[in-house]
Design a protein around this nucleic acid. Structure first.
Length: 202
DNA sequence: CAAACGATTTTCT
DNA sequence: GAAAATCGTTTGG
């Protein structure tokens, strides 16, 4: 039950951090509503050298500015005009690394999540997928730039250990336009977990 | 100032 | 399994 320290995010190996985020718990406290879910799927985006990243080639725009901040901030991007994608900014200042949270296993405030998603029953699709989990957790683009050190939005370690043999590495999803970089094994998920998004390939 | 595109989800066939 | 929805950001003129 400990919030991850800033030093967790400011390390330089974004792939390693992506793996370590599996099993951690994302918590939000918006409008007095407490919701929490265990992270079961992540994707690393290695900034300037990664064609799939918004910051490829050190591109720096108003939107990507947050990625250049030091690790520990949230980067929320609106995709296809309707989906909010939640990312964790990592590494040090001026290095635009980020990790996309693709899947969560609901732990607390499940009723609230269902209400936000307009779903009657609990089903994997509630939080399987980056756009879906953002809605369930109440995250939207207005939270971009918010520090993950709380009090409304943070990630904590509850002592859950994911054995390395239960971590599946795969190619990323929805980044086919990135050509060869789309084949990099930057996607990590917890083996057999129902809340891991299916994606298109793998 | 106008046009094109996308780190996806949902719904229909 | 495949196609449509939808709008802010980015890129070109």
């Amino acid at each position: 039950m400990m919030k991850l320290p800033e030093s967790f995010y400011t390390r330089t190996d974004v792939v390693k951090i992506a793996k370590e985020l599996l099993g951690k718990v994302l918590v939000t406290e918006f409008e007095g509503i407490h919701t929490a879910g265990m992270i079961v799927e992540t994707e690393a985006y290695a900034g300037a050298t990664d064609k799939a990243s918004h910051a490829y080639g050190s591109r720096r725009t108003n939107r990507t500015e947050v990625m250049y901040a030091h690790g520990g901030a949230a980067y929320v991007y609106l995709c296809y005009g309707i989906h909010h994608l939640f990312n964790v900014v990592t590494n040090v200042q001026d290095t635009p690394h980020a990790i996309l949270i693709r899947g969560l296993e609901p732990l607390e405030g499940i009723e609230a999540m269902q209400a936000r998603r307009g779903k009657e029953k609990l089903q994997p699709s509630l939080t399987a997928g980056p756009g879906a989990l953002s809605v369930a957790m109440g995250i939207s683009t207005q939270h971009t730039g918010v520090l993950l050190s709380g009090p409304e939005l943070y990630i904590e370690d509850r002592g859950i250990k994911i054995s390395s043999k239960d971590i599946v590495a795969g190619t990323r999803v929805g980044v086919a336009y990135a050509m060869d970089d789309a084949l990099r094994p930057y996607r990590f998920s917890v083996k057999g977990n129902k809340y891991v998004s299916k994606g298109k390939g793998l």
